[in-house]
Design a protein around this nucleic acid. Structure first.
Length: 263
DNA sequence: CGCTAAGTCAATG
DNA sequence: CATTGACTTAGCG
């Protein structure tokens, strides 16, 4: 028999749009981002209705991911091999259900072209940064056992940690990061310490100005968009489920960085 | 009822 | 898996 306290609509279609279902899945995850397969799993596990006609609704779901600006595609880190990319919620879209309906929003969430372009650039840069940080070490002279993407480990998020990473020989400028396919001038400026080296390092990411308010405790979790410098967390508020608190004003959750216009 | 968000089908990369 | 378009369906004010 169906469990009472669980979200169960039996074989009936749940009163949620694909967008809200997807948002739930993404938001329920610890990292606030999921690969497509996990989104599928989330939905099929709790809503038996979606255990059938999978071809149909999964196609529609994919259409939604691509079509709606509220979903952003985060490039998969090389040290996390797997199928597709990760999908996350655009931080400015967390209040998109403010009308209370999970069936139909009042307005579509659409980014202005200028914002879309910037996002595109940041994601491209992220992809390059990933390549940079998790690139295979250049032929270690000593057979070291512990060489590799140990950065990925969540332990010891200390800024100094990143200095141990072995960098491939290439210049490291913002320019080269933004342009994915530019073959990087070799043997150039002595590779300035890249601030981006702190990516995925919660403490380091949280620290740089401008942070709004005072960050007493560094957040234990950093959203991928945060990592891209799009937003800064408001201490104490970040992990909240927007779908469980549809009426909660989004302003309590985020402050936006100057580079991201609130839409 | 009208507007437009959401869902479907499907070609294409 | 991801993107896109053309078209239908249906929620909400």
């Amino acid at each position: 028999m169906p469990r009472p306290s669980r979200e169960s609509y039996g074989d009936q279609k749940p009163p949620y749009s694909y967008i809200s279902l997807t948002a739930m899945a993404i938001w329920s995850s610890p990292e606030k981002m999921l690969p497509l397969s996990d989104i599928y799993r989330f939905i099929t596990e709790r809503f038996p209705y979606y255990r059938r006609n999978t071809q149909r609704w999964q196609n529609s779901l994919r259409h939604n991911l691509s079509f709606n600006d509220c979903f952003i595609k985060i490039p998969r880190r090389p040290d996390r091999p797997g199928k597709g990319a990760y999908w996350a919620l655009h931080p400015a879209a967390l209040d998109m259900f403010e009308n209370g309906s999970l069936l139909r929003r009042r307005k579509r969430f659409k980014l202005m072209k200028t914002d879309k372009d910037r996002l595109e650039n940041e994601l491209a840069a992220l992809a390059n940064i990933n390549r940079f940080m998790f690139a295979p070490p250049p032929q270690p002279a000593v057979p070291d056992t512990a060489v590799g993407p140990h950065l990925a480990q969540q332990s010891a998020p200390v800024a100094g940690t990143t200095s141990q990473v072995q960098r491939p020989k290439r210049s490291f400028t913002i320019e080269s990061l933004i342009s994915p396919d530019k073959p990087a001038v070799e043997a150039e400026a002595p590779a300035a310490t890249p601030p981006v080296a702190f990516l995925y390092n919660p403490v380091a990411v949280a620290a740089p100005a401008p942070c709004y308010g005072s960050l007493v405790h560094p957040p234990s979790y950093v959203h991928p968009s945060l990592v891209m410098g799009l937003v800064h967390p408001h201490p104490g508020f970040y992990p909240q489920h927007p779908l469980e608190h549809p009426t909660a004003p989004a302003s309590n959750v985020f402050r936006f960085s100057p580079t991201l216009r609130s839409v």
